[in-house]
Amino acid sequence: MSAEPARQLLIVEDDDALASTLRRSFERRGWSVCRAIDVDTMHEQLRSHSPTHAVVDLKLANGCSGLACVQALHGHDAAMAIVVLTGYASIATAVEAIKLGARHYLAKPANTDDIEAAFARTEGETDVDMTNRTTSIKTLEWERIHETLAETDFNISETARRLGMHRRTLARKLEKQRVK
C-alpha cells in the first residue's frame, strides 16, 4: 500500500489575513503550505519548494497581476493544479486565467472546501445552470473594464486612458463594484 503523495500548496496572496486563514485551514487538512505575495517572492518559493497546487489572487499589490503568476507557475510545472481567487471577477479575466493554465477561477469569498473542490475538477461541467437573463449595460461596462484591465496587465492609468475615462473615475468604479 503506497502512501498518498504530499500535497504541497503555494498561496500567492498579498492580503495577510486571508493568506493566514487559508494557510491554517489547509495545514489542518494535512497540506504543506508556503506563501508568496507577488511574482518575485513566488519565484523565490519555487527555488526551494515544489508545490503540487497553487491558489493565486488575481490582483496583487503594486499592480502585480496574478495572471503573470499563473503563466509562470504553469510554465514551471504544467501538472500543477492552479486556482485563481479574485474579488474582481469578470469573464475576460476568467478566460485568460484558464488559457494561461489555471484549472479553475473562483470569486471571493471562497473557502477551503470550494478551493479543494476546484483542485479536484479536471474537466468542465455540462450541467451548469444557464440563465436566460439579458446582459445589462452595467454588466457590459464591467466586462469591458476588466477585459481592458487584463490587456494592460492591471495598469489602472493605461486602462483609464484606453477607456477614455479619468483614472480616479475608473478607480471609484472598481472599488464600487468589487466582489467582497
Results as ranks from 00 to 15, higher is better:
residue 99 K to L: 08
residue 53 H to G: 08
residue 32 S to K: 09
residue 19 A to S: 15
residue 33 V to D: 02
residue 118 A to P: 05
residue 52 T to F: 10
residue 85 L to G: 03
residue 138 K to T: 14
residue 61 A to H: 13
residue 101 G to I: 01
residue 1 M to R: 10
residue 114 D to I: 02
residue 101 G to R: 00
residue 10 L to P: 11
residue 173 K to V: 00
residue 114 D to W: 03
residue 98 I to Q: 07
residue 81 A to S: 12
residue 136 S to E: 09
residue 53 H to D: 13
residue 144 R to M: 11
residue 136 S to L: 08
residue 85 L to N: 04
residue 150 A to Y: 03
residue 8 Q to W: 06
residue 38 D to L: 05
residue 102 A to R: 00
residue 100 L to E: 06
residue 137 I to W: 12
residue 141 E to G: 00
residue 176 K to C: 01
residue 155 N to R: 10
residue 50 S to C: 13
residue 101 G to F: 01
residue 166 H to Q: 13
residue 57 D to F: 04
residue 64 C to T: 12
residue 105 Y to N: 03
residue 49 H to I: 09
residue 67 L to C: 09
residue 11 I to P: 09
residue 37 I to H: 11
residue 21 T to Y: 06
residue 121 R to V: 01
residue 2 S to V: 06
residue 176 K to A: 11
residue 174 L to H: 05
residue 161 R to Q: 15
residue 68 A to E: 12
residue 40 D to N: 13
residue 22 L to K: 04
residue 74 H to M: 01
residue 16 D to N: 10
residue 130 M to W: 06
residue 74 H to E: 04
residue 10 L to Q: 10
residue 163 L to D: 02
residue 66 G to E: 02
residue 119 F to S: 00
residue 14 D to F: 09
residue 59 K to N: 04
residue 156 I to Y: 13
residue 5 P to I: 14
residue 95 V to W: 02
residue 45 Q to N: 05
residue 60 L to Q: 12
residue 9 L to W: 01
residue 111 N to W: 02
residue 128 V to Q: 10
residue 26 F to G: 02
residue 41 T to E: 13
residue 59 K to D: 01
residue 22 L to H: 05
residue 40 D to T: 15
residue 175 E to P: 04
residue 140 L to I: 12
residue 111 N to S: 02
residue 130 M to G: 03
residue 72 A to I: 14
residue 175 E to H: 12
residue 91 I to C: 06
residue 123 E to Q: 14
residue 53 H to T: 07
residue 141 E to A: 06
residue 132 N to F: 14
residue 104 H to L: 07
residue 173 K to C: 03
residue 148 T to S: 10
residue 77 D to H: 08
residue 146 H to Q: 01
residue 29 R to M: 11
residue 131 T to R: 15
residue 15 D to M: 04
residue 52 T to K: 06
residue 116 E to A: 03
residue 60 L to F: 11
residue 35 R to P: 06
residue 178 R to A: 15
residue 49 H to W: 12
residue 178 R to E: 15
residue 44 E to K: 06
residue 118 A to T: 00
residue 26 F to V: 03
residue 92 A to V: 04
residue 44 E to G: 03
residue 177 Q to K: 07
residue 109 P to V: 08
residue 119 F to H: 02
residue 73 L to Q: 05
residue 21 T to M: 13
residue 177 Q to H: 09
residue 125 E to W: 11
residue 78 A to G: 08
